[in-house]
Structures are given as structure tokens and as C-alpha cells.
Amino acid sequence: MEKLFFYLVALVAVGSGFLVVKCRNPVNSALALVNTFFCLAIFYVMLHAPFMAAIQVLVYAGAIMVLILFVIMLLNLGSEAHKRFTHSLIGGSIMGVLMLFLVFFFVNRGEPTGMRGNITDGLVDKIGHTELMGRTLFTEFLLPFEITSILLLVAIVGAVILAKKEV
């Protein structure tokens, strides 16, 4: 049952991912991408990471995609019907297939191993995923977390500077 559900959602994810690449109109691409993001959020839930699923929907599908759509609308990018919207189709495809082949080969070659942690599904369900995330983030990864805030600040300043009328 779970497996069937997985394959169903995976099919949707791959299909909408294909649409992202294929669609002539950027707005369609963007909507397909949102669809993919939702599928990924479903996978996160299946992987017992509900907090990640939540911010996947909130941040990606919500904030970032809205921003992208907003820019598309702002620039009034209609469908590129009148001209080619792709280039080097063959080269790109060969590269993609090569990449896929490589990663498949890599994944199927062996079992992922490493230090097994003590976070079991039961523990996550008992304590709650959000609390676990919070504990880890604000103890072990506090410094990177703070650095991330600086990165975001820089990005905001950069965006403002770049988008100003007179650069």
C-alpha cells in the first residue's frame, strides 16, 4: 500500500518535473514546479519529517515560487510562441542521460552505510519532529545558523541594491 502510494506520487513528481522543463510558457513551468514541491513534501511526511514538509510548502511552494511568479508577471513574460525556447537540445539531453546513468549506477552499487544515529521513527513521533530540529539547530548548529542569518541579510541588501533604478 505504502509502496503503491510512493510510486503514484513519484510518477506525479517526475511528470511535473518534466513539465517544468518542457513547458513553453514560464507560468506553466512555475505551476508544474509547485506541483513537484508538493510531491516532495509528501515524501518528507512519509520519511517522518513533518517539519521539513511544512517548511517545504511554506518556504518553497509559498514564498520562493510566489516570488518567481511575481517576477514573471512583472516582466510580462508571455509564452515564447514566436521563437525557439530551447537550444542544444541534443547535447543537454546526452548530458542528462549520462548523469542519470552515473547516479543510478552509483546508487545501485551498494548499501548506504555510515554512523547510525539514535533517531528512530518512534522517537520522532514521541518527542515531535519540530522539537528535535530545534534542539539540534540551536545547540549543535548554532554558529552556522547565525551565519545563515547574515547570509540572508546580505542577500536582502544585494537584492535591494541590484533592483534599484539607478545602480
Binding site: 549520462l98 552515473l102 549506477f105 552509483f106 552499487r109
Partner: peptide, 10 residues
């Protein structure tokens, strides 16, 4: 990327 990863994978 393909070449470098391929070198390690294959």
C-alpha cells in the same frame, strides 16, 4: 562534473 564523478564511480 560527469567526468569527475564518473572517475570516482566507475
Amino acid at each position: 562534473v560527469v567526468v569527475i564523478v564518473g572517475f570516482y564511480v566507475l
